[in-house]
């Protein structure tokens, strides 16, 4: 008896320690995998033209400030215009998309109406269709409306996000208790008040998630604006930086400017995630308390 319990007692903590080490190691590997390219961008952005291809990969260079100055001077500062465009597309698009997703997700989760399941099934189908496939049909459609090459041509297609609606519905179903709605209804709240005062505050963490997802997706989107926009004053960063990369045969790609531009375009995303993280934590905590 004693012989079996003693090793059992020591084995248990060892097993749990080993159990903790493996996931941690895997997570660390994952973090390394994700962060290595980013750290390369950070280091490479500090290299001057002469250093970029001649010094060893992870040795910082001396050209960061001159790279930024060159980038700011490139075509009279068109980079900042592209940055502003991207903020408009991503910020505006994500806000509108979050609004649409939340309202429709809430309605789908909390109201029973004919065709509800059909709509939801179609939505699930929409999640499965990659946005890339739709870019060219959308372009032809917008062209026939005369809307191609406008700000709207990039904003509108991104507003309806099937995944966002799906997420909002799931979240509303879990986070907004029917009993609460019922109670408010008995107190005489109408649909509008019900949504604004009861449902939306409860759905805030979910909304933040949808906003961040959409913001990142639009920020990084390349194909849709690439196809839709002809006027380089309306380009977002992705398409703009690509014109520096594929600069034609007689002009070498402007690697220094592209890398520096990539680094600068990362900054707002990182800042956004850091500031929004707070809401995500409540999200996780809220989920934990629910059951």
């Amino acid at each position: 008896m004693a012989a079996t319990t003693v090793p059992g007692r020591t084995a248990a903590p060892r097993a749990s320690r080993a159990g903790a080490v493996v996931p941690t190691a895997i997570l660390l590997l994952g973090a390394l995998y994700c962060l290595l390219p980013v750290s390369w961008v950070v280091v490479a952005a500090t290299k001057s033209k002469a250093e970029l291809f001649s010094t060893s990969t992870f040795v910082p260079g001396t050209g960061l400030l001159s790279n930024i100055a060159d980038l700011a001077a490139y075509r009279d500062g068109v980079f900042w215009l592209w940055l502003a465009n991207t903020v408009l597309y991503a910020g505006g698009g994500a806000l509108l998309s979050t609004a649409v997703s939340t309202v429709s997700g809430y309605a789908l989760a909390k109201y029973a109406f004919p065709g509800r399941n059909l709509i939801f099934t179609v939505l699930i189908g929409g999640v499965l269709v990659p946005a890339v496939v739709l870019a060219i049909p959308q372009y032809l459609l917008f062209s026939s409306f005369g809307l191609a090459d406008t700000y709207w041509s990039v904003l509108l297609p991104q507003i309806l996000s099937p995944y966002g609606v799906y997420l909002a519905r799931i979240y509303a179903a879990a986070a907004v208790p029917d009993a609460l709605l019922e109670a408010a209804r008995i107190d005489g709240a109408g649909h509008w008040l019900l949504m604004r005062k009861v449902a939306l505050p409860l759905m805030l963490p979910g909304m933040v998630t949808i906003f961040l997802f959409q913001f990142t997706a639009i920020w990084n989107n390349f194909l849709l604006p690439f196809i839709m926009l002809g006027d380089d004053a309306k380009f977002p960063l992705t398409v703009g930086l690509y014109t520096l990369l594929a600069a034609g045969a007689n002009q070498p790609a402007l690697y220094n400017l592209i890398i520096t531009g990539t680094l600068i375009s990362l900054v707002p995303l990182v800042a956004l995630f850091l500031t929004m993280q707070r809401h995500w934590r409540t999200d996780l905590a809220g989920g934990a308390l629910k059951s």
Partner: peptide
Amino acid sequence: VTVSKQAGGDDAAAKFLTAAKAGN
């Protein structure tokens, strides 16, 4: 004349063909 600077190469050709097909 308004110049709109595009990315060069094969993608530029594909983009122009798509735009021509769409009529703008």
